[in-house]
Computed example of a mutant assay.
Amino acid sequence: MQVTPSAAGHRSGFVALIGRPNVGKSTLVNQLVGDKVAITSPVAQTTRNRLRAILTTDEAQLILVDTPGIHKPHHLLGERLVQSARSAIGEVDQVLLLLEGCEPPGRGDAFIVNLLRQQRLPVQVVLNKWDQVPTAQRPEADAAYRDLLAESGWPIHHCCALTGEGCPELVQAVSALMPEGPQLYPPEMVSDQPERLLMAELIREQVLLLTREEVPHSVAVSIDRVEEMPSKGKGGGRTAVLATVLVERKSQKGILIGKGGAMLKAIGQGARLQMQTLIDGPVYLELFVKVVPDWRSKPQRLAELGYAEEGR
């Protein structure tokens, strides 16, 4: 990796975004980077991989580590996701703790706060979705979270990841606490993740958006083949992507395919448009659906899908 020489005063480092599921971590990553890097969905526990996005400014380069939401796991996959999020805390220079400012703090928030208090890392707090808090209720909401964070000394920022409100100030605050160092990535890069992983995530995002609670977290996507088609002839110049969507039950397969294949077609169309933006070119996408009973509790299957146990 080519490293840019350090300019005087330039800062760089890694920032882990930590919080409960569905507090807006992935939305904030996309907002800060200014590009679609992490998938988002109204469904909780959308993020499964510790995705790294890169934000480069004149003053600093921040590598944002978007982690799975910390929650009480109900299967082996859930255990590994929480393990992934917790291990990220020990591998970064700074932590952004995201809390849902429009809701009162709960036991899950208190658990994460206590977890972070055991670390010797700079922590900054983001009260996200602040635009959803009525102006008259903001002092009360702010006070409730300050009680939760009492004696921590962590700075608190009020933001809206969806609109960008408060985000420029947040970037300045995070940059100021980073150690001095060179750019670790070329300034035009927004992610260091393999293209295949991003493609799989874009397909899974469409499944979550279009099926919602009917097929919640029983879905995984594997990219079976990616190849460039010859520039001449029918379909020439396109990138061909073949992918398999895994589910746990036959009924879920039926939902994903839909009547006359309509649902699978809609999923493919949505994912293909996102992929074309990702690779900046036309895409031919073919999807298959496969039933693998109880795949979320099978270590070998999880490893094949990239959810290996941390440290292995």
Rank of each mutant, 00 (worst) to 15 (best):
S26K: 13
K259T: 07
Q193D: 14
K298C: 11
A173I: 06
K265A: 04
L197K: 03
L99G: 09
G260K: 04
I39K: 02
G270R: 08
V289Q: 06
P155H: 03
E227Q: 14
H75L: 00
P182I: 00
T277F: 07
A136F: 08
L264W: 07
Q252I: 10
V82S: 07
C167S: 09
T244Y: 12
P187T: 12
R238F: 08
A60D: 06
C160T: 15
P168D: 02
V3P: 10
V65A: 01
T135Y: 12
L184M: 15
H10S: 05
Q300N: 12
T56Y: 11
K290S: 11
E201C: 02
R80E: 07
E310Y: 13
Q124Y: 02
L184I: 10
T27I: 08
P299H: 13
E214K: 15
K234R: 14
P282G: 02
G306D: 05
L32M: 15
T211K: 08
D294T: 15
G261P: 04
K25S: 03
A7N: 01
I255K: 11
H217Q: 15
V291I: 12
Q94F: 02
L302C: 09
V190W: 11
Q61L: 04
E169Y: 11
G13N: 05
R80F: 06
V113E: 03
A136Y: 13
K250D: 15
E91F: 08
G164Q: 03
I255H: 12
P168R: 05
I112T: 09
K72I: 08
K129V: 07
E79M: 14
